[in-house]
Design a protein around this nucleic acid. Structure first.
Lengths: 338, 338
DNA sequence: GTCAAAACTGTGACCGGTCACAGTTCTATC
DNA sequence: GATAGAACTGTGACCGGTCACAGTTTTGAC
């Protein structure tokens, strides 16, 4: 490997200043909005930036300003949920785009194993990022504790159980959504409606069940509730359990599309027609909902809005603004499974 | 909001040096491997780091060393492919973990729109990251051109068409994999085997077709080939087209599980039983393969290995090592669709 | 025509590390 | 016991920006 002639040092702000015939300070001002610089100077600097091919050095800027212009996208889910569930990639993409527009970057942090946990905690504690987008934390998440204690600006996705008031949150109205889903099944004439819930230590796991129970009122039968962990496999085994306990079940509300998909597979193997014999409704409206046969009726979560709101909120907190939480509406998407 | 008492300034290397009774230089040496420092000094520094709660400032370090200790995970796919296809999240997660082990971070870059393209090019050109993991680039990708011209160390996933020798790559043997898949169908006794290909400007789109054709030899019928774009919808319409052209088709090889899933839906609606009437084989072994009914036979890509190799290779190039490419084997996973 | 305020510009210190180099101590060799 | 070299330590310069402040010019009011 020969040394390329491209060994020219990267231009610094001093090079630009020299080329434009002004001082570093003026160049800096032009870069940062251009206030309080004369039109002549600004033009000269703009020109010099072009000719030199200058780009500000992020590290130097961070060091001087104390801000990194990056935020962490923090995943704490155990591994199998992550790639089983396509929802997180929607959030991720949305957040990345939203941040890019604001010229900030997104660093992905995965805290699956305990070892990763402590590494992540260290990393965040060191102040390497300006803020954290916390994705779907389980109750009593130790990471949340350390986040709160280090004081890194944080916005959560889905109300972290037990910390409702401590931390700004973007979430959907779980209870209302679950009621809507349940009402839909009732309105379709179903009588024996079961539910496959998410883990009880997650907001979706807990509150969707609450909405389900609230909506059914007196006709709620605890025997028709079976827990899952959002994964397809858990949906399948939960459905199997429900079928065994209540062969006359005529509808099921799953707290995720993945679990609904698992349930559909089991129902079909059991010879049930969907929706004639059993109606199925999911939650999320992830890409999965369309791959299932029949396509799933589901509660759509506005993932694009969620990520946009999270970024907006986080940046607001980083700027020193007061923190508030946002609740977004879901919508019922009716397809062929009900 | 009252000012918290936690306004204590973050400890710097000088604080640690003072606490340990040594110089900054010694502390720096301890942090970076601890060579050439006496056991006494090292112990004192380690102790001081603990008591002060010191973490090195990444920006300062980057500024001094000229390295950012971060790499970009660059997505250039058009939007709809991204979240339709779960494969990228596997790669992403694998890469993040692999990097975390080496105390580097992964910044996610999305270059979907032309505007994002130029922003990303700028960002990379500015040297904000030490290297780039390039995910599935299409031929004549302008971003690739600018990457090569800026000289940022880059490793591609899947041989970038037209740049085979310019850039280190981690890929699977597309042709051999396609031959294995095709052979499997032939061995199952199928006679009229169709293929749904990926876009011709992607390596998977081009070379899987080559393998398919090679394996079939004389019995290859160009009339039984229909292009798709890896998405489920495209798989469905391609399957519909094939069925119309060749109602006697008895097997189909799709270049992605998503397309296979789309094909399965169409086949079932057409009254075909799978695999009795038509066998279907996919590619990837993404999570999707198990959600389809029946579960898909498919060619498994070793995504964990791919991301691990990519990171390893990239870091090697960053360190100034010579670049080489790696080809990994796929494996046939037989399920119920063949 | 004076003077104050507004508009603009340049300078030096600083952010928190790393690195080269010079200086010191310790060990081993003849 | 002189001396070379290894092992260890401290110092100042530097990375490339930003910022506060001081200095200069322009503008407008009286």
């Amino acid at each position: 490997m020969e040394t390329t002639p491209t060994t020219k040092r990267k231009p610094t702000i001093r090079d630009v200043a020299a080329a434009a015939g002004v001082s570093r300070g003026t160049v800096s001002r032009v870069i940062n909005g251009g206030h309080w610089v004369s039109p002549d100077a600004k033009a000269a600097v703009d020109q010099a930036i072009k000719t030199t091919g200058y780009h500000a050095n992020a590290a130097a800027r961070s060091l001087a300003t104390g801000r990194s212009n990056s935020v962490a996208f923090l995943l704490t889910e155990p591994q199998h949920l992550l790639f089983a569930d396509p929802t997180f990639s929607l959030l991720l993409r949305g957040a990345a785009q939203e941040l890019a527009q604001r010229h900030m970057t997104l660093v992905l942090l995965v805290a699956g194993t305990p070892e990763e946990h402590i590494n992540v905690a260290q990393y965040l504690g060191a102040g390497h990022v300006d803020g954290v987008l916390l994705i779907s934390s389980h109750e009593s998440d130790p990471l949340l504790e350390s986040l709160l204690s280090t004081g890194v600006p944080t916005v959560a996705c889905g109300i972290p159980l037990g910390h409702a008031s401590d931390i700004p949150t973007v979430s959907v109205d779980e209870i209302a959504s679950a009621r809507t889903a349940t009402r839909h099944l009732v309105e379709r004439g179903n009588q024996r409606i079961g539910m496959i819930t998410g883990p009880a230590d997650t907001p979706g796991g807990r509150y969707r069940l609450v909405g389900f129970r609230d909506e059914l009122g007196d006709s709620f039968d605890p025997n028709l509730v079976e827990p899952g962990d959002y994964s397809m496999a858990s949906g399948a085994s939960a459905m199997a359990a429900l079928l065994e306990r209540a062969p006359d079940i005529d509808a099921v509300f799953a707290a995720s599309d993945s679990m609904a998909a698992g349930a559909v597979g089991v129902l079909r193997k059991a010879g049930k027609r969907i929706p004639e014999d059993v109606s199925v409704i999911g939650f999320d409206d992830s890409g999965l909902a369309l791959t299932v046969e029949p396509p799933l009726t589901t509660m759509r979560q506005p993932f694009e809005q969620i990520s946009a709101e999270m970024v907006g909120l986080l940046l607001h907190v980083i700027e020193g603004g007061t923190s508030k939480s946002v609740t977004l509406p879901t919508s019922l998407v009716v397809r062929d499974s009900t």
